[in-house]
Design a protein around this nucleic acid. Structure first.
Length: 138
RNA sequence: GCAGCGGGUCAGACGAUCGCCGGUUCGGCCGGGUCGCCGGGCAGGUGGCAACACCGGCCGGGCGAAACCCGCCGGGCGGGAGGAAAGUCCGAACUCCGUAGGGCAGUGUGCCGGGUAACACCCGGGCGGGGCAACCCGACGGACAGUGGCACAGAAAACAUACCGCCGGUGGACUCGCCCUCCGGACGUCGGGCUGCCGACAUGGGGUCGGGAGUAUUUUCGUUCUUUGCAGCAGCCGUACGCAGAACGCGAAAAUACUCCCGACCCCGUAUCGGCGUCCCGACACCCGGAGGGCGAGUCAACCGGUAAGGGUGAAAAGGUGCGGUAAGAGCGCACCGCGCUCCCGGUAACGGGGGUGGCAGGCAAAACCCCACACGGAGCAAGACCAAAUAGGGAGGCGCUCGAGGGCGGCCCGUCCGAAGCCUCCGGGUAGGUUGCUUGAGGCCCGCAGCAAUGCGAGGCCCUAGAGGAAUGAUCGUCGGAUCGCGGCGUCAGCCGGUCGCCGCGGUUCACAGAAUUCGGCUUAUGAUCCGCUGCUGUC
RNA sequence: UGGGAGGUCGUUCAACGGUAGGACACGUGGCUCUGGACCACGGUAUCGGGGUUCGAAUCCCUGCCUCCCAG
């Protein structure tokens, strides 16, 4: 009877040490967003655009920019929820600051293809980021 | 069945897995605060000759924690978007600022009564308008308080005059008719008969000239089916084609003769019509022109007066229709309708009904400026309140200015280096940041009472009640449900067919508008489904 | 959240309540050997819906959109 709880906590703990998205795991201030936009790496996916900036400390942070071009409040909330769900289930391996900008085609896509697009795009960013960091060290 | 009108309700349901927000509770970590104990360092105060003792303070360290607060981790429990949360178009609560009182400006409202904390909202009523009706809509005060506007057209677009027109009058010009006077001219007009003259036209006979057509003869020219000759081929023949001449035939021109037709002129005869003259008979009339005068009528322009019936226009032009009346007309008079004033009755009132009376005021537009009445101080939860780093600056006190404050190295002292007019402490304002404001409220439903109702009252009952702080309710599935489309089947309206509608099965598609951001009351806009009542039309029984 | 300004040819600007007008652009023709420039002619529009008015781009109401400002 204690097995399910152990299983659940054991699943959540190794990934982030916390369940869900706490304020520490979100990008909240405009200055932080601007820092990611300025010095981060920008990669376009099919349904979204990612801005990635590597971090030194542990938790990866997520920011979502759902602009008014996407539609009304209901549509933008839906986009935010889906992006959060994808981030929750497919966290990046190395700690980063990540800003996701959904495109308008976001709503035409199914959830599975969104996940696929996210992981593929994120893989491209990490490859480019590692090369950059090597260059910096040498 | 179709079309429509009014009102109400719901906002797909259930389950599985993975998740979100804040609340509460339990456990864990003492991680921080806090507290306790231990020991260390620093400087100080009091007592003492001194050793030293006591007192509180600062700095960092170790160990521990029953309770409290915060943080992190894990679990339990219960809660978690709307009818519009939207637009931000009104009204309020709340907060700060301003404010003696009042006014101006500005904004808004604008039939009456009621409701409400308030409103531009709601209810009831009145009036006006739309609709066959159910029912719906209405910024619905004032235009002799003032200013301004009304394009084009039209006489005129606004204190009502002026233009045309109509009517009457005055004097004038012209025309016509009648009468009178004078002068001049002329004997009239119509019909019938007899007779003469002139003219026009038709017809018959004869003659002359001209033109046209036909036939015959002759001449000339052209043509060549035919015929003759030449020529024709590597050579012969000689066909066709070619060249030249020619007869018949055909065509054209000219001349002559005959026949027929047409036209012109001349001569003779006959018939008809028109005009004029003389004479006779019958009937009807007294004539014509000019000048002057008088009377009457008409036309023209002018002036004076009456009139507002009429005047193409225009969106709109000083009551409407009818009869009478008049020089022409006119509320000039009358009837009905409209309007104003007044009286009575009903109603709290808006207003309605009835009587009398005035002969009629007065265009439209105030969603032009404006006037009148009433209401409103301004800003907004990013309001505001509290706590409060760093940096800069303000105030107070202390220390220091070469006799060295302070800082770096270091655990401390010594030492050494830097070092020059500042430095330290406290206080207050206040930024970042945090806490709060913050969600239970002018709350809903039922019942009772008051009221037509909106609504109010009830120490009657029941129930709800997100409070985040870049923003939470979701994602992926399954089952069921709703809607719609297609196919098939059954039923339905007297019978058959079609169509409509309903039910069942299968398959497909689809399930709206839309997310709290201080909170309420309204309005407006977007939108899916369903129920109830009502109206009109149509079909069948 | 609050406040303000504005929607007129394809573009940019006009228009006391009375016919929507320029400039650039576009089309056709002319000029030129051709193109450009130039000349002539032409088409094209009041953000949507309702109301006031005889009549609305203009006035009023209501939606939609754009821009600006404050913290």
């Amino acid at each position: 009877m204690t097995a399910p709880t152990d299983d659940r906590s054991g699943r959540a703990a190794p990934k982030t040490g916390a369940a869900g998205l706490t304020p520490a795991e979100r990008i909240r201030r405009r200055s932080e967003y601007l820092r990611v936009y300025e010095s981060g790496r920008k990669v376009h996916g099919r349904f979204m655009t990612l801005f990635v900036l590597p971090r030194t400390s542990a938790p990866s942070r997520l920011g979502i920019a759902a602009t008014r071009k996407l539609g009304g409040a209901v549509s933008r909330n839906l986009a935010r929820r889906r992006v959060r769900e994808i981030f929750r289930s497919h966290r990046p391996l190395t700690p980063v600051d990540l800003v996701v900008v959904p495109k308008r085609e976001f709503f035409d896509a199914s959830f599975e293809s969104l996940v696929h697009d996210f992981t593929k795009t994120l893989a491209r960013t990490s490859r480019g980021r590692m090369q950059d960091s090597y260059g910096d060290r040498t």
